[in-house]
Design a protein around this nucleic acid. Structure first.
Length: 259
DNA sequence: ATGGTCGGTCTCCGA
């Protein structure tokens, strides 16, 4: 089973690039971030015609996540638990009903800039809530995968110019420590394991010729529960997508799990 | 060195 994550930065603007990649890469499951659409306006029929079930958790103009799956989905949940006042659409999960079921959690972790400040506080609070949900799922001892745009650069080797990110919310010690805490609960970061780097990036800014200069960072991650990590066969980053027509600033990241 | 680009929408904000 192939599972992928792709921050598309706007579904309307990305239909051509996204459908072309889906045809070529043929993931069984893909988690999308920054759909920037309410659920009613998401072009679900286009993906259903390609054989995907579609589950969205959107909002107007910003954020928004979705799961597309060629297999049946059950227990679909929208929103990260732990704060009923949080209206930002950044979390969706569902169980993929394969031969051996896998729970898929699609996430768009807050950017957090500028730091310090209320946006950074929200980021760290969100990560604490995610850790609480991960603890619940670990305790259940089921296979699950948390894929998405984490907006965290784990280590210096995950940035072409780490010195440029000092003081940024994506690279501050507290952000990296919060990500490490989830790893220490038993989650395996798939791309780190299979492509130990350096030079593996998933995001290149639209500005300042970042792509042409290969000034990238690795912030889109796939974290595997112990039961999912047992089944990890392969992980990859579809870097070439960044050089296509009307690209997102992120590229897809994927894993293949044994059936 | 420092300005530069997108997407969605309301003419600026978030990234």
């Amino acid at each position: 089973m192939k599972l992928a994550t792709f921050n598309i930065n706007g579904i309307k603007a990305r239909m051509e690039a996204l459908t072309a990649w889906l045809q070529a890469a043929a993931p069984d499951v893909v988690c999308l971030q920054e759909i920037k659409s309410v659920d009613e306006n998401f072009p679900r029929e286009a993906f259903e015609a390609m054989g995907y079930r579609v589950e969205t958790h959107g909002q107007k103009a910003f954020n928004g996540v979705a799961i597309l799956a060629k297999l049946p989905l059950s227990d679909v949940r929208r929103g990260l638990p732990g704060d009923d006042a949080d209206e930002q659409a950044r979390w969706i999960e569902a169980v993929v009903d394969a031969g051996r079921p896998v729970r898929v959690c699609g996430l768009y972790l807050p950017n957090g800039n500028p730091a310090p400040g209320p946006k950074y506080d929200y980021k760290l609070g969100w990560m604490a809530r995610m850790e609480a949900r991960v603890r619940e799922l670990i305790a259940a001892e089921e296979a699950f995968v948390c894929l998405g745009d984490y907006n965290v650069i784990p280590q210096a080797l995950d940035a072409a110019k780490p010195e440029a990110w000092v003081g940024d919310a994506l690279y501050l010690p507290e952000s990296r420590a919060a990500l490490r805490r989830m790893a220490h609960l038993g989650l395996t970061e798939a791309v780190r394991t299979r492509l130990p780097g350096p030079g593996v990036y998933t995001f290149w800014d639209f500005q300042a010729g970042a792509w042409e200069r290969n000034n990238g960072i690795r912030i889109d991650h796939v974290m595997l529960s112990p039961q999912a990590a047992d089944r990890l066969e392969e992980a990859g980053v579809d870097k070439a997508v960044r050089g296509g027509d009307k690209p997102s600033d992120h590229v897809p990241v994927w894993v293949r799990l044994a059936a």
